[in-house]
Design a protein around this nucleic acid. Structure first.
Ligand SMILES: [Zn+2]
Ligand SMILES: [Zn+2]
Ligand SMILES: [Zn+2]
Ligand SMILES: [Zn+2]
Lengths: 165, 165
DNA sequence: GTAGAGATGTTATAAAATAACATCATGAGC
DNA sequence: GCTCATGATGTTATTTTATAACATCTCTAC
């Protein structure tokens, strides 16, 4: 029995509840420290983004939210919460998927580099200084001032390679 | 007098007609060589994508097309042409803009790296081996098999920096 | 408590992309 | 030339993603 995207396999079998709890705790701390308001709604959206390591679309989150509450929510509600979360660096938008994923290390410097698996759908965030440096150098060489580098690498993760050799 | 995105400034003042002619010639040659059918429609869409160095949205191209012909064209027509052009490596899709831009060196190896200027909107395609290598190494280190790296760097180009210092 | 700012609700609409099916054009083989 | 298979385009409808405009609520500072 298998579906297209079975279970998250970022690191095969891990305590994901811990990922979520940890993310929420750090978010609480960061926002408190910054005086940013992590409201109930925003916190809930953050939790839903973190429901797996697969980037989720705004409308998927919307559905979750509506389902949980019974009452239906408007898209804008979700988009606004996501906007806040992205601004605070708690969530990243994966441009090539029109989807959002929890940030692995909020607070730290962020260039946003992702390995996105075509098999399981997981997006692993990395922060590779060689990539950052290489991009910066290439830009400087052309007189280009970097503001926001986007790196999204499609491919197949280790686990998925082993499953389909 | 100035608009948001005045004229392409990829390399300030250049013979852009030459860029276009060149791109079309190379496209003709490549497709002939591959037995791919660069039909009138596809060729026209390619020309419209090349109308500047700014990535253009599918619907913008659609408008151009409809306007030129008088008769209105369906979105799908444009999307199908773009799909073909992307498959042939003649055009790149800029994920973070939902837009398309002509490829600077079709036929050659393609990792698709872009410096996208927030000022003039131009997207300069680069093919930097350090970036390619850094991504590949980072992926390998994690057992990840790279299929399609996406690099889209937002920032400000040289010309735009000089204009707004 | 009252104002003001920021957050959320509500309704409508825009922008981007695809699905399903019909028709047309092209080129290989006869 | 004609026929047929394949691929390209036309047509209509729909889905998915994102934003605009304006009303209401809520928290906080004073
Ligand atoms: Zn986890
Ligand atoms: Zn995988
Ligand atoms: Zn040019
Ligand atoms: Zn510029």
């Amino acid at each position: 029995m298998s579906t297209d995207h079975p279970t998250p396999t970022l690191h095969a079998r891990h305590d994901h509840a811990h990922c979520v709890a940890d993310a929420l705790t750090r978010a609480d701390a960061l926002c408190a420290q910054r005086g940013a308001r992590l409201t109930t709604l925003r916190r809930r959206v953050l939790e839903l983004v973190w429901s797996s390591h697969r980037p989720r679309g705004a409308y998927a989150i919307l559905e979750d939210l509506s389902q949980q509450d019974g009452k239906s929510t408007a898209p804008l509600t979700v988009y606004r919460a996501l906007e806040f979360l992205v601004e605070q660096g708690l969530v990243h938008r994966i441009e090539s998927l029109n989807a959002y994923v929890g940030c692995a290390s909020p607070g730290a410097s962020h260039s946003g580099q992702f390995l996105v698996c075509e098999g399981c759908g997981d997006a692993a965030e990395i922060d590779d200084s060689s990539i950052r440096t290489a991009i910066e150098s290439a830009a400087i060489a052309r007189g280009f001032r970097v503001q926001r580098p986007t790196v999204e690498v499609r491919g197949v993760c280790k686990d998925c390679q082993e499953k389909h050799p």
